[in-house]
């Protein structure tokens, strides 16, 4: 029941307007065919399952239908910020790829 700030709509909105989109920055391997089973399995299934700060995606379902990045604390539900996909990537990298 938290509030999320949609970086496209520029407003804080109720959680009901959004849908969770999974852990952020799980990039599809550039060449899946040359990847071994373990590497492909990691991409498919391995997730951080963090207790604490977590970079994740949300989709603004009833609004702009855009996916964006949220840094959320999975234990306290505190939210450090939300960004567009591109800006979120920069913020994530600025933290060294993980919080």
């Amino acid at each position: 029941m938290f509030l999320l700030s949609c970086p496209h709509c520029g407003e804080k909105r109720e959680e009901e307007e959004f849908a969770y989109g999974g852990e952020a920055f799980i990039a599809r391997p550039a060449d899946p065919e040359t990847l071994d089973d373990e590497g492909w399995g990691d991409y498919l299934f391995k997730r951080k399952n963090t207790k604490g700060w977590h970079w994740e995606m949300w989709g603004h379902q009833t609004g702009c239908r855009k996916f964006f990045i949220v840094k959320r604390n999975t234990a306290s539900h505190a939210i450090a910020g939300s960004w567009t996909l591109a800006e979120g990537r920069k913020a994530y990298d600025a933290e060294g790829g993980a919080a």
Partner: peptide
């Protein structure tokens, strides 16, 4: 709807919930 109508100024349009629809 869950949207705060006080923030809906003239000329503004928002997509939000309506019951379990939108």
């Amino acid at each position: 709807t869950v949207y705060d109508i006080a923030h809906l100024d003239p000329g503004k349009v928002v997509g939000t919930t309506f019951g379990k629809s939108a």
